[in-house]
Every structure is written in structure tokens, then in C-alpha cells.
């Protein structure tokens, strides 16, 4: 690609920043291997999605405006989480529907914000990132990534090029894992029932690893896997794409 931005600004989802930094460092390695220069604004925190989904739009709008302040000057913004990108790309416009100046700023930022696998495949035009990973992997389609951003082929295309990796599709990979933000805390009985079905579908593939592009869903799955001692490992897709031959 000729017009690839030389410089990418990292937008690190708050859950990854605080609990799963390894996934972000894996993304850093993959992007740097592609010759991309990385910038990380030190003031970034959260895009506001948890508040937005729970209905607290005033609070979400505060963080959205702050996000624009922090990221506005970026050439391209890349994030290892589909739902955060969906928030910026689609819901900021809802938040600022009646504030034309903020809306214009939000639209400009939305147009240069990319989910990690989307950026690799659609912007950089790369599917083979030179990764190695041994074993069978199954891929979970996260709801907002799939239905909000329309990203389904990009992560699969990347996974198929990984040496040693066999991609095994699960039944209804596009069905929600039951996370849904505060829903998982407010309605644990329902949320767990959804998660059980998801994990049963993961297990019936026989794959030892489940991956995806959203740490929220992956953390949700890992939560039950850990509790029940299930023999499945969970990896963010960046960790697989950063895999090296051993």
C-alpha cells in the first residue's frame, strides 16, 4: 500500500492497559515488525463505552470529548479492541448528535480509528505477519466487532497465514458470550448460561486455544475457564500474531 501512515497512535483499551498489558505489547511487536512507528499518548484512559452501554451518556460524553482532545492529532489510531473502536466510530456520533462542532471532530477521529486486525488487513494490506503458533485455534466473533464494524474475514485471514496454526471454526462463533458490560454483573444467571454455551461450542472444536479481537469477551471466557479448570487457553489475537518459532 502506498498511502500507509508512517505513524500509528496506540489506543489501548482500559482493560488491556490495566489487566492484560501483554496483549498490547504483542500488538506493538506485530505493528513494529511492519515498520510502523508507534506513539502512545500518556494521558489516555477509557473511551467511555462502559458508561454509554449502561445508559450514563453524560459521563460517556465527558470521556468521549476527552478522547478527542487526546487523539485528535493522530495520523491513524489503532486499538486492540473491536468494541472500543465501535464506540468511537459509531456511538460518538450519537453522543454529539446535537453538538455540531463536537460531532465534526468526532467524525474526523472516527474516520482514522481502526481495530488492530482491520488496520493490518485493510490499511496495511498484510495478511502474513510472519507468525508461528503451534496447534489448533478457534476464533470467537465478538458482537460489536462483527455487527458494528463488520470485521470477520480480517482476523481469519491473518490466522490462516500463521505457520503451524490450524484454524478450526466453532458452531455459532457469532453468538454472544454473555458479557455485555454491567449485564454480566447484574444478571449473572443469564450471562453464565450464555457463556456455558459459548464454552461448550469452543470445547467441541477440540482446539486447545480460543482467540478473538476483544479482551472483554476473552476475559469473560477465561473467567469461567479458570473457575472450572477447563483445558482451554485464551489468547488475544495479537498474542498469536506475535508468536515466534521456538
Amino acid at each position: 500500500m502506498t498511502n500507509r501512515p508512517k505513524r500509528v497512535t496506540l489506543f489501548i483499551q482500559c482493560i488491556i492497559d490495566s489487566c492484560f498489558p501483554d496483549a498490547a505489547w504483542a500488538m506493538v511487536r506485530v505493528l513494529e515488525k511492519q515498520g510502523v512507528e508507534l506513539v502512545h499518548p500518556k494521558d489516555q484512559t477509557c473511551c467511555g463505552q462502559p458508561a454509554f452501554n449502561a445508559g450514563y451518556r453524560q459521563e460517556a460524553a465527558r470521556l468521549a470529548e476527552r478522547f478527542l482532545d487526546v487523539f485528535e492529532d493522530a495520523e491513524a489510531i489503532v486499538c486492540p479492541s473491536g468494541s472500543c473502536v465501535n464506540m468511537v466510530r459509531h456511538h460518538y456520533a450519537e453522543l454529539f448528535e446535537h453538538q455540531p462542532r463536537l460531532l465534526a471532530r468526532a467524525e474526523a477521529v472516527a474516520a482514522k480509528t481502526w481495530e488492530f486486525t482491520e488496520y493490518l488487513v485493510d490499511v496495511l494490506g498484510v495478511t502474513d505477519v510472519g507468525a508461528f503458533w503451534k496447534g489448533q485455534v478457534t476464533y470467537h466473533d465478538s458482537c460489536h466487532l462483527l455487527r458494528g464494524l463488520g470485521v470477520a474475514d480480517q482476523p481469519r485471514a491473518l490466522l490462516r497465514q500463521v505457520r503451524g496454526l490450524e484454524l478450526v471454526e466453532m458452531t455459532r462463533s457469532d453468538e454472544c458470550c454473555g458479557f455485555g458490560g454491567t449485564f454480566a454483573v447484574k444478571y449473572p444467571e443469564i450471562s453464565e448460561a450464555l457463556l456455558e454455551t459459548k464454552l461448550a461450542n469452543v470445547q467441541s472444536t477440540g482446539a486447545e486455544t480460543v482467540t478473538g479481537c476483544d479482551m472483554g469477551c476473552l476475559m469473560h471466557m477465561q473467567g469461567m475457564i479458570t473457575r472450572r479448570g477447563l483445558p482451554i487457553q485464551v489468547r488475544h489475537i495479537a498474542e498469536i500474531l506475535a508468536g515466534e518459532e521456538r
Partner: peptide, 24 residues
């Protein structure tokens, strides 16, 4: 109120160092 999560699922601990801290 967060006990709803841990009814049937474990919760991830905070990492020793956040991405932001280590980057800085």
C-alpha cells in the same frame, strides 16, 4: 455489587505494571 461477576466466574487481577506505566 461486583459479586455478581464472581458468582460463577473468576475475575482478572490487575497486572503488576499497566501498559501505560511500562511504556512511560
Amino acid at each position: 455489587p461486583l459479586s455478581g461477576w464472581t458468582r460463577g466466574r473468576d475475575f482478572p487481577p490487575l497486572a503488576k505494571e499497566s501498559f501505560t506505566e511500562r511504556w512511560a
